[in-house]
Design a protein around this nucleic acid. Structure first.
Lengths: 112, 112
DNA sequence: TGAATACCTGAACAGTTGTTCATGGGTTAA
DNA sequence: TTAACCCATGAACAACTGTTCAGGTATTCA
């Protein structure tokens, strides 16, 4: 098989994520590493919202929300629909809600 | 039902994650938001390793790895077993590998 | 056309993060 | 006991992140 991904550098038995792939994973999870982004995501889980209403809902300035939405757009987590002078955002992908479920479980597991 | 979690502050129709819960979600995902931590996780996916060998495998200093392992321990993502003067780490939880699978898919999805 | 509305963007600044460096504790072998 | 080994930790510093603030673009309405 002529696979193009690099092998582990030190020990052939281990196969460690390549730096590039690890970087992509980290970039994605970093986007989910901000509490205000989670609040935005949760607000969009039930309905599409204008930036203005979203800002009011999560109690942030429109500017701050707009900055965050750009990041969520970059990671293709939200949908974007311009209608007149309003812009409606929604959740693009339901992987995210699955993540939310999974991690909620993990966080709720008892110590051992 | 006498639930103790706070309701949305602005609009009863929306239910947005509480600040506290959003914070916990974000803290968890932040841990997965570092490329070197993903390389450590991938190394531990197949076998338990001593700090020393882990450091060699991911090509980091033992100190840096030790710092990162502490973070992973705090989030209960890795197991810890001390044996003489060696400490073996492994993956504690398989939620993480599921996450890895899910997000790989997301990252590999074509643009649209 | 001019003003108001809805949203976006760049710069700057405070707060956070991850590494290195130096050191210290605990365990094993001589 | 002494020396070597394995790992953990605190401080410090550079790099990154998210907000605010000021301004800018595009659309609607009077």
């Amino acid at each position: 098989m002529s696979d193009s991904h690099p092998k582990a550098e030190t020990d052939p038995q281990l196969d460690i994520l390549s730096l590039e792939k690890a970087q992509r994973m980290a970039e994605f999870f970093s986007v989910l590493g901000d509490p205000n982004r989670w609040r935005i995501i949760s607000a969009l889980a039930h309905q599409k919202l204008r930036v203005r209403d979203l800002a009011a809902a999560v109690e942030m300035t429109e500017s701050a929300v707009s900055h965050q939405l750009r990041i969520l757009r970059t990671m293709r987590l939200v949908s974007y629909r311009k209608q007149g002078r309003n812009v409606f955002y929604g959740l693009k992908d339901h992987h995210i809600l699955n993540l939310y479920q999974d991690i909620s479980e993990h966080l709720d597991e008892p110590e051992d």
